[in-house]
Design a binder for these strands. Structure first.
Lengths: 205, 205
DNA sequence: GCGAAGGTGTAATAGGCATTACACCTGTAG
DNA sequence: CTACAGGTGTAATGCCTATTACACCTTCGC
């Protein structure tokens, strides 16, 4: 049978719906405690559909994580292409990256990946490579480009990228484990830290 | 019956043995996939003993995590009491704290806590309060003391403590999720970052 | 030795869940 | 209209594991 457009659509919507329900439940209860039954109850459709679309529970987790996960690479590219001076560019990147990574959904996703990583390290490595590693390399390229363009800065691009990303990642880690106890990682405190970085790297105009 | 010393010892050793086996297995396979049966097989003793000592599986997790978890507070106190100048003191603290937090056992523990935190946020908050929060406060006190003693520094103690700890925490987060892919977080790279911090904070002698 | 108190090992209990098997329904082509 | 092909819902299947119940044994005071 040749698939018609409407059928493809329906399957697509089913897929979407299942992934969304699964994500919500994984985020609430974790992977192991979430049963396929509950996911199906919430999403509509049926178990058979889940197995047809994702193979098994792990396949569904894969879809949940990698449908959403994105690196900050494009975000960095966009801001960089605005052509602002280095200091301002970095301020914008910090703010946007922070906002994206500290989004509750994103934090929850990171928790799930770390949890899963205990029994399946490969899974977490894959996640890391498609997110943090890409982001860091994009940052490193920016520092490198500035350096070659004659912008004065203290420290090599690799270290600067590491420190700069660390300013944001440390908030993510704190939030992942403290569930809000540490106080909201606010934009103002991030801004303070960003200025600290700018001064230290000699990039402050 | 009045407990004799040898009996207390035996129970203590049993407890120790069970906690150690549980930790090893939790670290390898995660909390949910580890069965009490396997723990007992490995530790010796029996299920009944586990239930007597820990109540249930969660109680055992609690013992595993909080027996080991310690804040960096005492470490910081010790180094501070050596009376070295601020820059040198911070170098020593960074090195020792990094070594402790990046120890594979400690990283694995953090993974377990984060995993568990999905269904029991309170648990993770408790962990956070007895570890990271204490450490940060200890750092903050040091910066505050220096500041009051007339040492010149740029930025308030709270922010400095946040950034300084972030230098180390970001490595922990990276290691927790990347399982080594990011390359060994080496002492040399930490040293570079520490110098960056010292320059930026104006604490370099 | 001896009796008891409590630790120890083993064998149920009981429920849960991923996965599979199967029957039904719906929409389509001829 | 009819037969069918594949999606869909439901009811097993089969295994696993936290927890409990119970019988045995070790140890210690006397």
């Amino acid at each position: 049978m040749i698939e018609t457009a409407t059928e493809t659509d329906r399957l697509d919507r089913r897929r979407q719906s299942i992934v969304e329900s699964a994500r919500a439940l994984f985020v609430e209860q974790g992977f192991e405690r979430t049963t396929l039954g509950h996911i199906v109850d919430r999403a509509g459709g049926s178990l058979a559909t889940v197995y047809k679309l994702f193979g098994n529970k792990e396949g569904l987790l894969d879809a949940v994580v990698f449908d959403q996960a994105g690196s900050g690479e494009s975000l960095i590219r966009e801001v960089a292409s605005e052509g602002a001076p280095p200091a301002e560019t970095l301020r914008r990147i910090a703010a946007k990256l922070h906002q994206r990574l500290l989004d509750p959904g994103e934090v929850a996703l990171v928790r799930i990946v770390i949890a899963r990583s205990i029994e399946d390290p490969t899974f977490a490595r894959r996640f890391f490579e498609t997110t943090a590693m890409c982001t860091r390399q994009a940052l490193q390229r920016i520092f490198g480009a500035w350096s070659e363009a004659g912008v004065a800065m203290e420290g090599d691009p690799e270290m600067l990228a590491e420190i700069f990303l660390g300013l944001i990642i440390s908030d993510l880690q704190t939030e992942a484990i403290s569930h809000g106890v540490a106080g909201k990682p606010s934009q103002e405190r991030l801004a303070l830290r960003t200025e600290f970085f700018l001064k230290g790297s000699g990039l402050l105009e």
